[in-house]
């Protein structure tokens, strides 16, 4: 069975690579984007993304929060996980069904959340 795809959006290369490994180890297929515009381009070109995992602070006109809001609006079934080093993110700032993890995040907590979000359909891997 095809692995479920997680779109990772992160401008810091080493963190992007690390997140890619983390997602892969958890049994998903990582798709990488280095900013919000790349992420939008990917989302427009394919329809197999189950989760978007995005950083907030990124260069360009669109940050992670705006990206998340756009995803919730245009691709409602996609699950959203947001991460940032900022501490002042409250549930009300997040899109519907959105999750937040403060950087540095525990990889186990994040991958468990990914598995929980995609459970109920076919199992990954």
């Amino acid at each position: 069975m095809k692995k479920k795809c997680v779109l990772i959006v992160e401008d810091e290369p080493i963190i992007l690579l690390s997140a890619s490994d983390m997602v892969e180890e958890a049994g998903f297929e990582p798709i990488l984007a280095r900013n919000a515009q790349e992420a939008i381009d990917i989302l427009e070109s394919r329809d197999d993304i189950s989760i978007i995992f995005t950083d907030i602070d990124m260069p360009g006109s669109m940050d992670g929060m705006k990206l998340a809001a756009a995803v919730r609006n245009r691709w409602p079934p996609i699950e959203i996980i947001i991460t940032s080093g900022h501490k002042n993110i409250s549930q009300s700032d997040l899109p519907e069904r959105g999750l937040f993890f403060r950087k540095p995040y525990g990889s186990q907590k994040v991958t468990q959340a990914m598995q929980r979000l995609t459970a109920g359909c076919s199992s990954p891997g």
Partner: peptide, 16 residues
């Protein structure tokens, strides 16, 4: 915020 991002990078570096 910067410290957090640095710690996140330290984690990522270790992992890689």
């Amino acid at each position: 915020h910067r410290l957090k991002n640095t710690l996140a990078m330290v984690q990522a570096i270790a992992r890689q």
